[in-house]
Design a protein around this nucleic acid. Structure first.
Lengths: 114, 114
DNA sequence: GCTACTGTTCACCTCCAGGTGAACAGTCAC
DNA sequence: GTGACTGTTCACCTGGAGGTGAACAGTAGC
């Protein structure tokens, strides 16, 4: 299994605290690489690698402006990740509630379920 | 940076298609290891490893029943991952809309925004 | 043009995710 | 108790995430 989907890369992008911190800063608006990564306690080459991963996931895009690179959040991948989570959480809730209802009905009828 | 948080592990758990497929099956209700992983085209040792990762993230829990192991979805980690995404997506939307509003107001006043 | 600044690339390291086949442990069924 | 079944453990391999310091490329400012 070598073909990683967009969803794979989106969730992977969010699985590291440094990358989530970068996303959290970009939520407030575009920022340069230095601004988005200052105070994260990580070296410049490490930041470059985290940004590559965020870009490969499509979560962040970059425009070069002179000697600085401006990073912007790209909403689509986060929207899709969120949609996946919300869909499956709601399916689970529905299932869970139907089991609860079934159990309580069984109890009212003094039955032993299954 | 070696101390991975719950959120790190939750997003990491969702970053692989085999693990998401397992979660998708468990949404429909508890299942044994064999049921949850059949047809995924992956060997038994690989399944064991994916399950360890899902358990370490707290996404799945396991009860041993005879020779079969029953897997159940644990809602809390997915809830937290979903909450993180929803929070930051809504913040981003709010920011984006305020910028849009500012730009259109500037345009009305014939100003050139910085 | 020289210097300072921003960010990437390079060379290198360690660790672990992800995969396999073979062997094993435990349980069920006859 | 023998055999079939479920799932883990073991030994092994590969690739890539995550990190570093040093060197480099490009731009801005004087």
């Amino acid at each position: 299994m070598n073909s990683h989907t967009e969803l794979d890369r989106s969730f992977l992008a969010l699985s590291h605290p440094v990358r989530r911190a970068i996303v959290e800063r970009l939520v407030a608006g575009p920022a340069t690489v230095g601004q988005a990564s200052s105070g994260l306690g990580v070296s410049k080459p490490a930041v470059t690698k985290h940004l590559k991963l965020l870009e490969s996931a499509g979560v962040v895009n970059r425009t070069v402006a002179g000697r600085t690179h401006v990073l912007r959040l790209e909403p689509q991948p986060l929207r899709e990740a969120s949609a996946w989570l919300e869909l499956h959480r709601s399916l689970w809730r529905a299932k869970f509630e139907s089991v609860e209802r079934h159990l309580s009905e069984s109890h009212e009828r003094q039955e032993v379920p299954e």
